[in-house]
Amino acid sequence: MSLLDAQNISVAYRGVRAVEGVSIAVQQGEIASVIGPNGAGKTSLLAALMGLIPSQGRVMFDGHDISHLPTEARVERGLALVPESRDLFATMTVRENLMLGAYRHRGEGAAKRRNGMEEAFDLFPRLRERAEQLAGTLSGGERQMLAMGRALMGRPRLLMLDEPSLGLAPLIVRDIFRTIATLREKGVSVLLVEQNARAALALSTHASVLENGSVTLAGDSAALAADQRVTELYLGAAH
């Protein structure tokens, strides 16, 4: 059984379909990726899976139908999203942002929360240096680390990442992708949405290509990486 099994997801915005009948699955313990050019509907798809925007279709998570649950209830069940816009609490400190990431475990003791915080700091040592700094003053790369760290504080079962490399310098992108690889070893399943196609395909087991709101190619990541059509999708057909 898949951890996440989304079937026939459609998102309409002002009568225009941004996502049309997309089905996608993530197995327990794997990294799956969705690649595609700008405007293909990747962000809308994630927002729909997270319950942030209305959508049609069925979302099964761990065998339960969560299609009608609000975002916070999906978070309670172990789904987490690091959105493209990061959505940090800009005027709170890094530490406070991380602490709120564990909001779904608010019944637990402070000691356990501190442990989680230490783990996040171990994963992103830069954040430890910045612990008392306001999130709004961080650089782009640090913001992405904090957004990921905050999501991981909730100990999610599935982490969905929307364009984690967006606008970041190559060295930082490399670090972020290395971290994603270590997450798999820790048993966190990941759904990675990227326009950085090469990195995403290298990292994931399965991948889907999203174009104009629909999945046009899907399968083994290694096979897709070798597919000529993926290159064309990004740089246009040769003349």
Partner: peptide
């Protein structure tokens, strides 16, 4: 500060 961010951590 950020409603969407709040929902994403489960508030």
């Amino acid at each position: 500060i950020n409603r969407r961010g709040a929902r994403l951590v489960g508030i």
